[in-house]
Computed example of a mutant assay.
Amino acid sequence: MRPTGRFSPGPEHQEIVFLTGSGISARTGLGTFRGPDGLWALEPETEEAMHAELLPGSLPQLWSVWGRMAQIAAEHGPTPGHRAIARLGAPVITQNIDGLHQAAGSEVVAELHGSALHAVCLDPDCRWRDHLVPGTGPRPEDHGVPAACPRCGAPTRPDVVLFDEMLPPDALELGMRLAQRADLFVAVGTSGTVFPAAQLAPLAKAHGATTVLVDVAPPLDPSLRAAFDHVIAEDAHEVLPDWERSLHHVGGTSFLDPF
């Protein structure tokens, strides 16, 4: 039986796809980026360092910021929302760089903004990439990677997309393909204002999907809400586990949900 009072998926939804933003990870302590309580407002110097044109001078701050975020994610682990999505077996398009979907068990994850759990070479023509060990500090060595690329000798950097940089083409292509094949497209914890991610819900809707926004504080702007057939102004960490239990015909709260 489906939960009453709000939309929930049913057996007719065979291709559920999720788009997630920082809201789904906020419970770990990572917080969100936009708004009066967001990282950009509280730490304007961090926002300034996110501009690609400031490289390589901004590298120490980037290592400090993203290393700290990766460490918080690693210490706190996935939220109930992440775990519910993984148990649903649904592919994910995410704007997050924290790796929590993979940690929860999701197998298909398109990371539109890169990964704070990886380092890459500053030279865009060099393909070196490696895992890092999240830590604190302004040096790549503080995060378990060398300061100089082992292949070409250029500086290394966190593998996150900065302002004025292109999104990873493979991730963007995968995200668009997933949106087009979805019969249910669910956006969770995202502002809906950042492109190209903001175009994915309209793309899914144009291809026949039912579109749903789950956010504890969804936007009031009618133009942002217009892309969604249903807007659920509730906590995704309650809504998504409810969906998963309903679809899998189980009751109670999973012992896997520690929050």
Score class of each variant (00 low, 15 high):
46 T>F: 13
36 P>N: 06
13 H>C: 06
213 L>F: 10
71 Q>M: 12
110 A>T: 01
58 S>M: 14
172 L>I: 11
31 G>N: 01
12 E>L: 09
29 G>H: 08
40 W>G: 03
222 P>V: 05
145 V>E: 10
214 V>A: 07
102 Q>E: 11
33 F>Q: 04
247 L>D: 01
75 E>Y: 11
255 F>W: 15
212 V>R: 02
92 V>Q: 00
258 P>M: 13
159 D>H: 15
43 E>Q: 15
70 A>C: 06
126 C>H: 08
204 A>H: 01
25 S>N: 08
220 L>N: 15
226 A>M: 14
144 G>S: 03
171 A>P: 07
95 Q>I: 02
226 A>G: 08
174 L>T: 01
206 A>M: 15
91 P>M: 13
178 L>Q: 00
100 L>Q: 00
72 I>W: 00
10 G>Q: 09
137 G>A: 12
214 V>F: 11
211 T>K: 06
197 A>D: 05
145 V>G: 03
37 D>T: 10
87 R>L: 11
58 S>W: 02
180 Q>G: 07
206 A>C: 08
207 H>R: 14
84 A>V: 10
134 P>I: 07
152 C>A: 05
202 P>W: 00
92 V>C: 07
171 A>S: 12
112 L>I: 04
253 T>N: 03
93 I>Q: 07
77 G>F: 04
132 L>I: 11
118 H>E: 14
249 H>E: 10
150 P>K: 09
115 S>W: 01
132 L>Y: 04
8 S>H: 11
190 T>H: 02
193 T>K: 14
126 C>M: 05
136 T>N: 04
119 A>N: 03
53 E>H: 13
18 F>H: 03
199 Q>F: 06
43 E>M: 15
155 P>T: 04
187 A>V: 11
26 A>Q: 12
30 L>W: 03
252 G>E: 03
205 K>E: 08
82 H>L: 13
60 P>D: 13
169 P>S: 08
190 T>K: 03
71 Q>L: 15
4 T>F: 10
214 V>M: 11
242 D>A: 13
253 T>R: 15
218 P>R: 00
134 P>S: 11
252 G>S: 05
87 R>W: 13
81 G>T: 03
146 P>Q: 14
127 R>C: 09
51 H>N: 14
